[in-house]
């Protein structure tokens, strides 16, 4: 269980993290979603004590991270897979962690097996590793102490599709056995398939949070037509809330209501369906649009 309460981090006048509160629960995968630079990494760094908070608190299993007597046995952390001594072998990196935690030496081999790093690969120095191999090594290090809580920053980065699938199954199984998983991503679809709960952050603030089904259910109906002005007039007349997306309209109503409106207005539809996730995607795109260098997201 991870509990974050009114966490803020200011750099001069800039609020990197602004009054963030959420809870990651045991038995569930909590997705921490936001565009690049939204404050995900800073929040995670504060959780594990690498960055001091300006105000607010973060606790893991009811205690501040610094108060954990042997943190590796309680929290598995992977913040940056590339932050390793390039001259150490993969096996040596795990051995150093295993010794620090005071675990039996056999755990290193078990973990290497689990993340499918072969003996030849684990004997190589990390400077020769691909990003995907570094991520696997980082996951192995995080799982080494059989912790109850996992904090992973963009763990799918650099993994190939099979690797992403493997990671998804691994984390699912881990949560199903009662573990708490918090993982961040800047990719909505990546996190949609694995997370039970979502925390969406933008510009340092939380913009939405809840279970995935709640956030998806709130999405309404997605409808497409060649005659957009006629349909929107009909929706206004029916008193329905809607928003125009890139090539479709999202309506805050059930599909059959929208279908009735279309029939009454006499507009031919090209598509009518429940908007599962479209609302979330729209919100996420808006967030991204503010921070995107290209300026135009839509």
């Amino acid at each position: 269980m991870i509990k974050v309460e009114s966490l803020s981090k200011k750099y001069g006048g800039f609020a990197a993290v602004d009054d963030v509160s959420f809870t990651a629960r045991p038995g569930r995968v909590t997705g921490f979603l936001g565009p690049n630079g939204a404050g995900k990494t800073t929040t995670m760094r504060i959780m594990v004590g690498l960055t001091p908070a300006s105000s607010g608190s973060a606790t893991v299993s009811g205690r501040r991270f610094a108060d954990l007597p042997n943190p590796g046995l309680e929290v598995g952390v992977l913040l940056d897979a590339s932050a390793q001594h390039a001259g150490r072998t993969g096996r040596e990196i795990l051995t150093v962690a295993q010794r620090t935690m005071g675990l039996p030496a056999g755990r290193v081999d078990e973990m290497l097996d689990l993340v499918s790093l072969t003996p030849t690969e684990s004997g190589r120095r990390v400077r020769n590793y691909s990003l995907g191999m570094r991520q696997r090594l980082g996951i192995a290090a995080a799982l080494l102490g059989e912790p109850e809580v996992l904090i992973l920053d963009e763990p799918a980065n650099g993994l190939d599709p099979a690797g992403i699938r493997w990671m998804r199954d691994l984390l699912r199984g881990y949560a199903d056995r009662g573990g708490t998983v918090l993982l961040s991503s800047h990719l909505l679809h990546e996190i949609e398939v694995i997370a039970d709960d979502l925390v969406v952050i933008g510009n340092g603030r939380i913009v939405a949070q809840g279970t995935k089904s709640e956030l998806l259910a709130a999405a309404g109906t997605l409808v497409r037509t060649r005659d957009v002005p006629a349909l929107t007039r009909g929706l206004v007349a029916a008193g329905l809330e809607y928003s125009e997306m890139t090539d479709a309209i999202r309506v805050d109503a059930d599909p059959d209501v929208v279908g009735q409106v279309a029939l009454a207005t006499g507009v031919a539809l090209t598509e009518l369906r429940s908007a599962e996730g479209a609302g979330l995607e729209e919100m996420f795109l808006e967030l991204t649009a503010d921070t995107q260098r290209e300026g135009a997201a839509a």
Partner: peptide, 18 residues
């Protein structure tokens, strides 16, 4: 200094926060 220049401090100081 290697903890900073090689960035191993990220692991070292999460395993031993003190």
């Amino acid at each position: 200094t290697s903890e900073w220049s090689q960035r191993t401090g990220l692991t070292t100081f999460t395993l031993v926060p003190h």
